[in-house]
Nucleic acid binder design. Sequence first.
DNA 1: GACGTTTCTGCAAACGATTTCCAAGGAGCC
DNA 2: GGCTCCTTGGAAATCGTTTGCAGAAACGTC
Lengths: 364, 364
Amino acid sequence: MPDLCLKSAYAVGMQTPEPTLADVAARAGVSVATASRALTGARPVSDTLHRKVRDASRELGYRRNAVASALRLQRTETVGLVLPRYTTGFLSALIESVSDGLERNDLSLVLRYSEPDALHDVGNVESLMARRVDGIIICPSSLEASQESIEAAGPVPIVQVGRFVITDRSDSVGLDEDRATQMLMAHLVERSARRVLVVGLDPDAPADARRIRALRGAAEGAADVDVAPFTAAVLDGGIRAAERLVAAGPGALPDAIVCANDDVASGVLAVLRMRGIAVPGRVQVASLLDLSPGREDLTVTTLRHPWPEMGREAVRLLLDAQQSRREPGAERIARRVSLAPQLVPGHSTRDRTVPTAPDSKETP
Amino acid sequence: MPDLCLKSAYAVGMQTPEPTLADVAARAGVSVATASRALTGARPVSDTLHRKVRDASRELGYRRNAVASALRLQRTETVGLVLPRYTTGFLSALIESVSDGLERNDLSLVLRYSEPDALHDVGNVESLMARRVDGIIICPSSLEASQESIEAAGPVPIVQVGRFVITDRSDSVGLDEDRATQMLMAHLVERSARRVLVVGLDPDAPADARRIRALRGAAEGAADVDVAPFTAAVLDGGIRAAERLVAAGPGALPDAIVCANDDVASGVLAVLRMRGIAVPGRVQVASLLDLSPGREDLTVTTLRHPWPEMGREAVRLLLDAQQSRREPGAERIARRVSLAPQLVPGHSTRDRTVPTAPDSKETP
DNA sequence: GACGTTTCTGCAAACGATTTCCAAGGAGCC
DNA sequence: GGCTCCTTGGAAATCGTTTGCAGAAACGTC
């Protein structure tokens, strides 16, 4: 096959001519069909030829062209991930775990961000469809307008994660925040908290209001739940709220303080420690949202949002849907998986076995 | 063309048969060639046919098959991004800006993570090459072993970002930390700091040692730079260091405290405020590393690492390299862009126009 | 030795869009 | 009117891989 050699030698410009399967086959002295079968193992090939092909492939530095392969197989081995922009700090753990899950199955990840203004979602899904991805994982950027982005996926499996647009077209994996919030309150009540103060939540924000309701619901008469005047949910907000509280005198101190997140809790802890108020002896402190799941310093009792698990679960649902799409059997039913944030006990709440210890030392 | 219709109608299973260009052409009553030309605008098409084709395309909900297109054009309109795992918190801003830059140029992003153990990098690049990406942006996971991952890219443009393996094969965009560190020191000296204390840096860690050197170099006799005994570079470390300092008596107080990062600075600030030490009146506080670039509370003067700009710059270099690769002109020369972290003045250092104000109020 | 039966190989046709090459038609010019 | 030039449309080749089909070879059994 002299023409093949010709092609290899005189490729455009001076670029290395990326070798093709035909080149490998020519070098091994077999047909392309055989070369393909030897490399993919799709059908048995005699030992001699198998070795010949493998050697030729290695010598030429052959790399299977995934594009051509995808065209022929009608399968790109690629999954699209669509996320809302401006929230990445939170979502990076999700990206990482999704990527990890896909890699284990030899799938590639193509990532797209949607502007918060919503119907970007549809465009992103459309664009992924044009790339013929095998599946899509999406965190809808708008609960109203993202409905049609789910539909745009047509027949390819799509999984929603983190947030959830009502539809029977897609599986989804979500967060069971209510349950987690309740668990946290139970944790405190169990440790004999009777007066609980909430810091850093804004009763006027619907999401925060819901959290407050969940806390009150879980207290259910076993404890009083007060809400401190709203201060920003950052470190400084925690500091300000705690200072105000301390200034109000020892009688104003609650048994436990529930903070919006770890930053707020850090601020509160710093003030309490400095004023010599024992934690968790006199006051217990807990946080509703772990901001840096990476760290392992168990300073503050917190709720860890299971982003890694959510990513894993999303990938699992997706692969499962792909699989069952091949077998034309029964109609698929949309599945919903809810994961609860995990309660991670830290040194800022008491050890359960130890009852109130008024003279306990400061946390180390 | 009855067979085309047949194909459309009797596609595999019950799946919607994704329409092809042939379907569109058939419906519009033209050849595929004309249909392609009408949609891509590669060559002029008469108005009548143009409209017909566009209508047919819309009616069928046609989506250009990017895979087939890529195969024919030898161009995937896709860029690979390779990042080290376990550092995403920091890198998420980078991902976002790279993604944004690519989107503006109608390029897709495929993301891969390398384990810290290094030669994963090579595998990731290889895999991206198999997908025939048009370019690669990589943050090398190992300064020793990642050399060959650059070479694995062969003729496709590759840009290093954040970290840098020496090679003449790739452009790179890096961080000019020394310059930024010096700027911060100059900022303090300008504001009449004469005794500076460094908190949260570990002289035994090479990177920290380098920062200390840079600070001393910039002080250059204009100020004394002391290093506090190492405490962990977290909020708590800042608190401990500051308490020790305050306990040593008012004479021990420096004019300015430079902290390893914002968390440390927060701890220091909390202690100073509580002990009634005026900031920035008595002591100024600054941080070498902004941990949460999203927030805009200008509490502490800090160095903001320009991840978004780095991403933008990386994309720019990549596109530029692609462009100049087409014109077979002169040999490409590797370019290196250095960006300095940006000094963001906050309320923890003085206003330059106002000289020392011994009775200034606490920061709000 | 003849005749199934298995095991391999190779040819050629997909996959779907783009582009080159050709041909036909119309406009413009002498 | 005859010529060229320009525009427009279609047939077919191309990108690189996989696979249905058919032929060939090897093997076993009677």
